[in-house]
Nucleic acid binder design. Structure first.
Lengths: 226, 226
DNA sequence: GATAAATTGTACCAACTGGTTCATTTGGTC
DNA sequence: GACCAAATGAACCAGTTGGTACAATTTATC
């Protein structure tokens, strides 16, 4: 962000000597830089609390480019949301649990999900913020509507095998399993601050987290066991 | 909100004929009215998204009185938060589970907690909002620090009895039990919008809620059973 | 009747904020 | 060398927003 030449101060920019600086053309890089800065700001302050000027300041580029690429504040917010959902979807797709016995597969899925949430508090906070806004942007996003649900299929298949092998009790909905895993993974992260405030325990602390993780996995397995 | 006399339009208010209206002095009523309006607005738009003028409009009184009683926007927000925590604490204290056998007591507690969250989405949303702000206002509130924890004692006692009677397995922390119950109660409400958007199911719908409720209770009981 | 607290209204302000305008240059590609 | 997209930068603006100033009146209390 260093300028070699002092910029003119008139409203109309100078003709010559504007900038001797050179720069590489890199649209993706600029978008990246803006998205990263925006994520930081939105995650920290929410949609209404985030300041465009603040995002611009965190960027390697300028406020000008934010509007150039994302149209307006909400467009930028939507882009951040979409990217985060893209990421967790890729994560879920990357799970390869088909080769494992059902109980191991389910325990592993629960563990992975727990870890993903614990490792990505930014994602958790964005989901919270989006829910505060009644998932309005999720609804208008064209990208998100088509995708998800894959995780439900994964769970359904593991569960089916588990029931067939007599390991799991029958009659449970795949969505119910997913919601239980999610709830137990999400809550510690989303409500970490209030839990610490009210009960004096920091669920994100490295000496407490593993215990909570084990409890979550055990709880899911016990929920399913025949 | 009817005025019998048209107010003067000068900056300096009129001397006479200001208002023939009479009103009863009712500080508590005015505070109530403001707090209710503020709750609606904060719950819907968050701390940064809420507009003081909008709160004033929802009030039976004026913006003037908001600052008169609560100092500033944050003071008002803090008052709303404190009141909500007061309410759930009273609810928790009101539970009388000591007379029931441990398993019944625990199931009833889980059910009550689930219902409280389902019936009070405003509370859930305020807790979300406060967590987005890292529970900063919970921390600075003098009222909240001293109180809670009673629910942990209730759980600890039920659990102790359950273990003594051989109904529950030993070695579980009371806080872990509470967090599990809370997570399973909170998540459906807090993430209702995104769940509906992504999976197409409205967890608050009257034909789905009871099933989710039962799953939550079952899950807690299975977590504990010896 | 005096005193203090509760209440009323509204115009107003300074700071902030999302978003735009203007004019221009540079890099890559064919 | 031409051409277009990428990139630059800072001033500026109109609308919003939390909060206040000012001046007065009414109600309850003793």
């Amino acid at each position: 962000m260093e300028k070699t030449v002092t910029p003119a101060k008139t409203g109309t920019p100078p003709r010559a000597d504007r900038k001797a600086q050179s720069w590489t053309q890199d649209p993706e890089g600029v978008r990246r830089s803006i998205l990263d800065a925006a994520r930081l700001e939105f995650v920290e302050h929410g949609l209404s609390g985030a300041r465009v000027d603040e995002i611009a300041a965190k960027t390697a580029t300028s406020k000008r480019m934010i509007y150039y690429y994302f149209g307006d504040k909400e467009g930028l917010y939507r882009a951040v949301i979409e990217e985060m959902y893209d990421r967790i979807r890729r994560f879920e797709r990357g799970l390869d649990l088909g080769a494992l016995p059902p109980d191991e597969a389910m325990a592993k899925l629960a563990g992975f999900t727990f870890d993903y949430h614990a490792d990505n508090p930014d994602f958790v906070r964005m989901v919270m913020i989006e829910n505060i806004h009644h998932a309005r942007h999720l609804a208008t996003s064209t990208k998100i509507a088509t995708l998800n649900l894959s995780i439900i299929d994964v769970i359904r298949e593991i569960y089916r095998r588990g029931v067939a092998e007599g390991l799991f009790r029958p009659g449970i909905e795949a969505l119910d399993i997913h919601l239980t895993i999610s709830a137990l993974s999400f809550y510690n992260v989303s409500n970490r601050a209030s839990i610490r405030q009210v009960f004096g325990h920091d669920m994100g602390a490295p000496d407490i987290l593993p215990q909570r993780r084990q409890t979550a996995i055990d709880t899911v397995m016990r929920m399913l066991r025949a």
